[in-house]
Nucleic acid binder design. Sequence first.
DNA 1: GTGGTCTAGACCACA
DNA 2: GTGGTCTAGACCACC
Lengths: 222, 222, 222, 222
Amino acid sequence: MGRIQRETVAEKSAAILRERILGGELSPGTPVTEDAVAEDLGASRATIRQALNTLLMDGLLTRHPATRVLQVTTLSPEEVRDIYRARRFLELGGVEAAAHASAEQLERVADAVRELEKTVHSHDVTGFVQADIRCHVEVVELLGSRHLTDAHRHLMEKLRLVITATEQQEALVRENLKERLAVHKEFAELLVAGEVGRARANLAARLEDAEEVVAAEAAGGG
Amino acid sequence: MGRIQRETVAEKSAAILRERILGGELSPGTPVTEDAVAEDLGASRATIRQALNTLLMDGLLTRHPATRVLQVTTLSPEEVRDIYRARRFLELGGVEAAAHASAEQLERVADAVRELEKTVHSHDVTGFVQADIRCHVEVVELLGSRHLTDAHRHLMEKLRLVITATEQQEALVRENLKERLAVHKEFAELLVAGEVGRARANLAARLEDAEEVVAAEAAGGG
Amino acid sequence: MGRIQRETVAEKSAAILRERILGGELSPGTPVTEDAVAEDLGASRATIRQALNTLLMDGLLTRHPATRVLQVTTLSPEEVRDIYRARRFLELGGVEAAAHASAEQLERVADAVRELEKTVHSHDVTGFVQADIRCHVEVVELLGSRHLTDAHRHLMEKLRLVITATEQQEALVRENLKERLAVHKEFAELLVAGEVGRARANLAARLEDAEEVVAAEAAGGG
Amino acid sequence: MGRIQRETVAEKSAAILRERILGGELSPGTPVTEDAVAEDLGASRATIRQALNTLLMDGLLTRHPATRVLQVTTLSPEEVRDIYRARRFLELGGVEAAAHASAEQLERVADAVRELEKTVHSHDVTGFVQADIRCHVEVVELLGSRHLTDAHRHLMEKLRLVITATEQQEALVRENLKERLAVHKEFAELLVAGEVGRARANLAARLEDAEEVVAAEAAGGG
DNA sequence: GTGGTCTAGACCACA
DNA sequence: GTGGTCTAGACCACC
């Protein structure tokens, strides 16, 4: 725990930019030039280049084919739906796997939900979103493959591009926070109780709703 | 039509190195230093750095924790099994999805098998391996999500690290080439016929066998 | 070994256009405008301009004096005869030089003929034309000056403008492929045997025949 | 004759630079950057780029393989000898062709020599060099192929890279101007008289001498 | 509509 | 930091 963590300037830069993008500070479509970033972060262009490359491969940045200029990725509705198809497959697969999961594994899902509950009580919307994500991640963990959870984490990150915290959405979220918590709790209970079919239905319904909201957002923003 | 596409020196370098690694020219554990590669490929260190970073993120290179020197990734048996868990999930999921797939989609799987057949007739072992991979890729395509097929492609590439074409293996492969083709053909027929259950069993058995072989190889090589 | 080499978009564009012209895809007289090419190849006008300039200086494109529009060069019969005068001088000079050439050099000519033989056996007409050209190039190589071989290569390329692979010609070529091979083989043997006079006569006759055919073609096509 | 000749800025720029290089104003090895030239000549970089490209293809500029920076070409002694091999072949071939040349054609050679004589009388060294070149060009003209004379002109231009007017050379040239004129006159007379063999010897001797001088110069300069 | 010219801005690579 | 490379978008001139 007390271990020193070396982190290169490039990695730090990438992390900062990632946060800015996913936090909505840099909205989709914004051009991102090496020079500007280098000056802004006070690093050399070569270093920034590396950082941008990381984000490019993560899909957070996209290169304009002609000008080669980088810009914050704009997710098309079609791509959002593709991601949801993938999520559905991975997460529902996780639910299915719950039937053979150890009690310890299931407990981690339940724990994620409890964490979600805390954020509701403290009216912490940002925390809610993170905890919500963790709830989904833990379900995929049930599949027992690091490679699959990595792929899933990647999908979730990409989605954050479009779920950027607009004020309206925040307000909207606040409205139904409790409602959503209830659904999550029900889901966790079903899972622990071994009621795979009903847990599956619960999750599927949630994903379907979310897909529509996010796809609409992507269509509107694009 | 004849659209031109640019490829930077860094991309070219990465592609060359990737081919060397996956082709077994650079075997797992081989240290890879910026200087050496830079001189070898006739590019500057900064450029090579970028290329190596790409491969690092692809998992083809690993950084030695102590010396920070890059080396060709050595897959542990445990990691091989993790990859196979992921493959099993994705590919068997693809089989399941075949029930709702269009005739056109199923045709692509059948086509991949036909291509495999050709390589057997022309005794093209290298081609066989590639066609074999394509057979599996096409099954995952049935899931209809680019993100999932990308993830799968990534897994397959990593596996090539350990399935490197040793002469012994080639000989071994030659032995049972026809046998393996027969299994593939049966699989394709079952899939097209809508016999999901039996197709699933066919594929599951193949994956299980392969996992044991590859995991053993990884244990031996490491 | 695996040294990387860069190729600019302009160079790539020039190469593509050259191939289209020499391959007969763009026939003599066809107008070539910057805009059209730029859009077709997906490059900017400035870049394409550079590529077109290269081809202009190579003589593959000609600028219409009035409209200043570029068009694929149409070789006049007179120009064809000029080229053949030059070829005759260079190639017959090469034959003369064979008297003082090393065995190794002569072997390269013989090798070119052997390559020609292969293409006949495999009924590869395209390959035949290329190998035929190489036979002539190797003779000029005997002169031992890179500048002369460059000039010769340039002539051969220009001729390809009018020897474009029309189907009729292909058929015609197929007819006398073996016959032409025989003459080539005899030539190589004479050369290696040091029979300069007879080798000279052999080559001179071939060039004279070819000149008539090509000049007629140029007269007809123009 | 009174026709208007449009000349693009790029062409003009190329001509100016060519003159600077061949006139020794820019000596071999001097780096030539787009920016500097653009500012110097008052044209845009795109335009200059085109001009530089022309000179690059003419062999007057060379691109440093690593840095891609252009610099005035430095001729190696080996390349000088290659050029002389080519010149020997072309010019001696021209002499040979004199046997079948028209009186009018031979007259042009004689005229070139007369022009040379004038420059000697007016002590015009620069003019002497130009007239000297014309004497050689006219001989190649006897071959009757524009393509060959073009190739020859190209060789002569490249040589001017190393025959740059150093003061010492100028002095040296002044010394033997008359002597060289005498040899030229003898050559023209032999040619007109149909004494091909002796004309050939005359020219061959001159070329051999020149080759040694120039190759030595190239070795010294490099 | 085609070509010639130019500006402005960015990326790419080397050193 | 320098230099090469490329794009985008504009203006003018000519037929």
